[in-house]
Nucleic acid binder design. Structure first.
Length: 469
RNA sequence: GCCCCCAUCGUCUAGCGGCCUAGGACACCGGCCUUUCACGCCGGCAGCACGGGUUCGAAUCCCGUUGGGGGUGCCA
């Protein structure tokens, strides 16, 4: 690594599954690192022992890999650095830049309430000269004057009055460092040059900067605070309230390429207006400095549309590979085979594939009531059409889509389902046949479907439907 | 309350002082194509939050208002 190599990091805390907001942050780090020829590091912020677990870490890593977001070097586990973080805090204590405090959260809040002014800690223990005890936390003494500011690539100059920054906790009474300390310290030791994260970290940035300065750790070259991803209520996406885990989207039949593509359009857009495109192009076009500062709504409808486009763009072979995990058995994969291409261009989600060809499986045909009603009861000449079709199918020499088509057209003409010129009206004529054989009024093209179904089963179903009328 | 941020169609965006009677995409609504559906194509609906400046000229710059959001933990 040359000294000028930009170093990015994605630092998830494994307190839940990787959700789309984090994934977007990881993606933007990764894209910019790619563009600048920099490195992308991964640090797992697992200092909250109670909420972290190895399963959650696995989920985060799996999701990143699935998305194709890779990283350089070994993963840093923040919990491994705890001693160094503690030592740093003690150094601050020795230098008089931190002090022990025995105020409880309740006391702090109560005083703030009575005071009526700014909330947060009031510096109560600043000069009490308390020694460390079981119930004391170490607080950082923030400057009373001056301002702390930084330049943000997406937001410009951001500045805070030091007087409004409370004396925040460095070490909990149980001795564990808090996020801010670990985060700032690790960024420094990992030589991170570009800090790219969610907008929710903006208010913590002056504390981060003050801390690094006090520790003599310098500061990152670049900050970029990405716009938050919000739900329909315009609130920050929450992993608890909003169903947004990347793993879940994967299970629901979304392609990684669609996911990444869509995520890239949240807070950023290609100048040429072409949104659906391969990752390689996005890597070329993406620029952190073009990211918008305002929050973005995560629109599943639009994601679905992207997904359909990405599915259609797959090669036939690739489509089969992607679909395989969503098929319940090898028999289903086999059944899909003859219609694969036709199905590929009709689904938005990989989970829609199996239902679309379910009529080909060796199981009793389920007939959709609404479809039946429409085609058989309200549709014209359904019984006649079925009779005529059965008759012609029985007489067919070759069971091919073309032959089937001719037979159906012929049947339609025979029963009078024709237009003004006397041509068969396939749109009407195919309906009863489709419902009788596939159970639904929509699906892949009928004649290919029947060819795949086979003459025996087709006739069986046509007769059964006829009997029901 | 206090601090910080944000503000272009319903949604995501392009726009970075004149090319804008504001472009694209999703969604929605018509129509065409068509064996259903899907695709594709054509068309429609719909937006610069408001008020002041600056300027010959503002969606673009400045200020304010309003609205929204984030932070305010001995969570990360």
């Amino acid at each position: 690594m040359s000294p000028s190599t930009p170093r990015f990091r994605f630092a998830p805390s494994p307190t839940g599954f990787l959700h789309v907001g984090n994934a977007r942050a990881a993606l933007f780090n990764w894209l910019e690192a790619r563009r600048l020829g920099g490195e992308m590091l991964l640090r797992v912020e697992d200092t909250d022992r109670e909420r972290s677990s190895s399963e959650l870490i696995d989920n985060v890593l799996d999701s990143l890999r699935w998305l194709g977001i890779d990283w350089d070097g070994d993963i840093v586990l923040q919990a491994d650095n705890l001693d160094a973080h503690r030592a740093a805090a003690h150094r601050l204590l020795e230098e008089g830049r931190a002090y022990w405090c025995d105020c409880t959260t309740e006391q702090v809040q109560e005083r703030a309430r009575q005071r009526g002014g700014p909330p947060g800690y009031d510096g109560h223990c600043r000069d009490r000269g308390l020694a460390q005890r079981e119930d004391t936390a170490l607080r950082f003494r923030t400057p009373d004057e001056g301002t702390t500011s930084f330049t943000d690539v997406v937001r410009g100059e951001v500045s805070f009055d030091n007087a409004t920054i409370e004396d925040f906790v460095l070490l909990r009474s149980n001795g564990l460092p808090v996020f801010l300390l670990s985060n700032a310290y690790d960024d420094a030791t990992m030589e991170i040059t570009h800090v790219v994260r969610g907008e929710d970290h903006v208010p913590g940035t002056p504390k981060y900067l003050l801390l690094r300065e006090a520790l003599g750790l310098g500061r990152p070259e670049v900050f970029a605070h990405l716009p938050l991803l919000v739900n329909e209520q315009r609130k920050k996406l929450s992993k608890r309230k909003d169903a947004v885990s990347v793993a879940e989207f994967r299970e629901r039949g979304y392609l990684a390429s669609a996911m990444v593509n869509y995520l890239a359009t949240l807070g950023w857009g290609p100048k040429d207006g072409i949104e659906v495109r391969p990752l390689e192009e996005i890597i070329e076009l993406f620029r952190l400095e073009d990211v918008t500062p305002s929050p973005a709504f995560f629109d599943v409808k639009k994601l679905q549309s992207f997904n359909a486009d990405h599915i259609r763009a797959l090669s036939p072979e690739r489509f089969r590979e992607e679909v395989r995990p969503f098929l319940s058995s090898p028999e289903v994969a086999e059944a899909l085979e003859p219609l694969a291409e036709l199905v590929q261009e009709r689904v938005r989600l990989l989970t829609e594939v199996e239902p679309m060809i379910a009529f080909l499986l060796d199981r009793p045909l389920e007939i959709d009531d609404a479809s039946w009603e429409k085609a058989m009861v309200k549709g014209k000449a359904a019984p006649e059409m079925l009779d005529a079709t059965i008759e012609r199918f029985e007489a067919l020499d070759a069971w091919t889509a073309d032959a089937i088509r001719v037979a159906v057209e012929d049947a339609a003409t025979a029963v009078g389902l024709t237009n003004a010129e006397g041509r068969p009206q396939l749109s009407k004529a195919q309906a009863p046949v489709r419902v009788a054989t596939t159970g639904r009024s929509v699906g892949p093209p009928l004649f290919e479907s029947l060819e795949a179904l086979g003459r025996e089963r087709t006739l069986e179903r046509l007769r059964a439907a006829r009997a029901r009328l």
